[in-house]
């Protein structure tokens, strides 16, 4: 019990600092790409900027707009933050750094990332704001559409290993990462694209397209509730990157360095690539996004699954 509480507190601390670090890093990466310097004033190269921002958000007054659906509106931040925190139960950080190796790991993490759509839609519906409602609707349509290619590409890894346990999947990659096999390399690309959409990041960030919808589903949120949406967003971001590492890039496998260092290097590497994509590509339109999910990604991932399965069954 004592170790469980310590592990839990470690995870909470990690969630908190990872979200703060990612907000700062995202601003630095965007600045680098746009030839600016980014935050520079608070702390060394602006490292404490996020701390200052959180204190500011903590001290903001509480504005509840008239007409909100109070229960749903207050519950939405919980639904955005709690599922990603729960996904940490079975994330293999290192050889023995895992809270509990669930035997349904892949399915469990996929369901936890999918629940976030509920929180986003609750925020959109509860806010009594036209922009929020539009953002919530878009987020729901987008996340359920990209759920299919995401799961189809993860299932290919399950077929390869015959286990849903994340630790088992990492151990199966001891003699070569899965990305080195051609059908799994395609699955990795599909996974990355679908994961970008799953966490509402540019080029798929139309649920909060700031030039059309204000801030989308969290337009009406202020102070700590707004901050919670940020924590939830960046924690889900970390989770999908960590899953990409675990499923395709060999998880914590790697020479010389301790296993959790390898895991963090690979995960933050994927996060960097996704940030790079975000600040390079323009936003897609709603119709382009939906037709891309259903007419391109889903058929490709299904064909990839069947062709990959054919080679596996004949190997």
């Amino acid at each position: 019990m004592k170790t469980l509480i310590l592990q839990g507190l470690a995870v909470l601390g990690f969630v908190f600092f990872s979200a703060m670090f990612l907000v700062w890093w995202e601003r630095k990466v965007s600045a680098l790409i746009q030839n600016r310097v980014g935050p520079m004033v608070v702390g060394w190269h602006g490292t404490l900027q996020t701390v200052a921002d959180s204190v500011k958000l903590l001290l903001k007054e509480n504005i509840v707009p008239s007409g909100v659906d109070k229960l749903i509106w207050w519950l939405a931040p919980f639904f955005v933050v709690v599922p990603p925190v729960m996904a940490f139960v079975t994330l293999p950080f290192g050889k023995s750094m895992i809270v509990r190796d669930l035997n349904v790991g892949v399915l469990y993490v996929a369901s936890m990332t999918a629940i976030c759509v509920l929180g986003i839609f609750m925020a959109g519906w509860g806010s009594s704001n036209k922009y929020s409602l539009l953002g919530g609707m878009r987020a729901a349509a987008q996340i359920i559409s990209y759920e299919i290619p995401l799961l189809l590409s993860s299932v290919l890894v399950v077929m390869e290993t015959g286990t849903l346990s994340l630790q088992g999947i990492v151990e199966a990659q001891a003699h070569g990462w899965f990305i080195l096999k051609p059908h799994l390399a395609i699955a990795f690309l599909i996974y990355l694209i679908a994961a970008t959409a799953e966490v509402n990041r540019c080029p798929f960030d139309i649920p909060e397209a700031e030039s059309e919808l204000g801030a989308g589903y969290h337009t009406e949120y202020t102070g700590m509730k707004f901050a919670m949406f940020f924590v939830g967003e960046y924690t889900s971001f970390f989770i999908v990157a960590a899953m990409a590492t675990t499923l395709f890039l060999g998880g914590w496998q790697g020479p010389f360095l301790p296993s959790f260092v390898w895991f963090l290097i690979k995960t933050y590497g994927i996060i960097f690539v996704l940030m790079w994509v975000r600040w390079t590509l323009p936003r897609v339109r709603m119709d382009q996004m939906m037709s891309f999910a259903w007419k391109v990604l889903t058929p490709i991932s299904l064909a990839n699954l069947l062709i990959g399965g054919w080679f596996m069954v004949n190997a």
Partner: peptide, 17 residues
Amino acid sequence: YIVFFQFLGVFFVGSAF
């Protein structure tokens, strides 16, 4: 473990509020 982490998440958001 799952229920414990659920409480942890609720505690995290609740304490921030």
